[in-house]
């Protein structure tokens, strides 16, 4: 059976959190799609709340704690990422962005990413496209065309076709990410941390 790794980054602050709930639904849908095509997926969930102090310390000292380093490494070496943040004050949460800020800016190059967000009302859904999509585009990640937004009201809607659209969006996004994850070779790559830039000459 083919093996792939999927990282799930979830930045909800409350426990239990609807952000985590959405992350779990997306993750289950992606794993299910991959299983249908004979791909076995190991899932690594990173709950940023548990690393909140480590993220702040990294911003101040410039280095990650062992737990934060493991989390960053597992994302960088994954075949795909599901990134879910609550929308605060028109954008991703500060903690979510701080976590992204302590990752080496080249570490997510080519990484397939499914972006998703939660919020109190549907009116903030566009934050996915004006804030979160450009963030990952800057990092040279490959952002899936379908982004998933879940407002509070979506959780009360039925799952019948057409009831709220959340179930369909989750499935469509999962299909897109599963296809990219299946083709990814990132988790089997070996990176040389001391690779010198092409043409580098120590004598000038």
């Amino acid at each position: 059976m083919t093996q792939r790794t999927l990282a799930v980054l979830t930045a909800g602050l409350s426990q239990p959190s609807s952000t985590r709930l959405l992350a779990d639904r997306l993750s289950a849908a992606v794993v299910g799609r991959l299983a249908e095509t004979g791909v076995e997926t190991s899932v690594e969930v990173i709950d940023v709340r548990e690393l909140a102090h480590d993220v702040t310390n990294n911003l101040l000292t410039g280095f990650p704690s062992p737990a934060l380093e493991r989390a960053i490494d597992s994302i960088a070496a994954s075949d795909g990422l599901i990134a879910v943040t609550p929308i605060f004050t028109t954008s991703y949460s500060g903690l979510f962005k701080s976590f992204i800020d302590v990752i080496d800016p080249t570490a997510l190059t080519d990484l397939p990413v499914l972006i998703a967000a939660t919020g109190g009302t549907e009116r903030h859904s566009l934050a996915l496209d004006y804030a979160i999509r450009p963030l990952f585009a800057y990092l040279h990640a490959v952002v899936m065309p379908t982004a998933v937004y879940a407002a509070s009201s979506d959780w009360g809607a039925g799952s019948a076709p057409g009831a709220s659209g959340l179930t369909e969006r989750v499935e469509r996004a999962a299909g897109e990410l599963a296809a990219s994850v299946a083709e990814s070779g990132r988790s089997s790559r070996v990176l040389d941390p001391f690779a010198l830039p092409a043409g580098f000459n120590p004598a000038g």
Binding site: T61, G62, F63, F194, A195, P197, F200, P202
Partner: peptide, 23 residues
């Protein structure tokens, strides 16, 4: 920066790792 480690090695100079702020 590996470039600076490479430079020190190229010249046979010393290499100093500050070591105090990072693991």
């Amino acid at each position: 920066s590996p470039e600076i480690a490479e430079q020190a090695a190229y010249y046979g100079d010393g290499f100093f790792a500050n070591n105090i702020f990072w693991p």
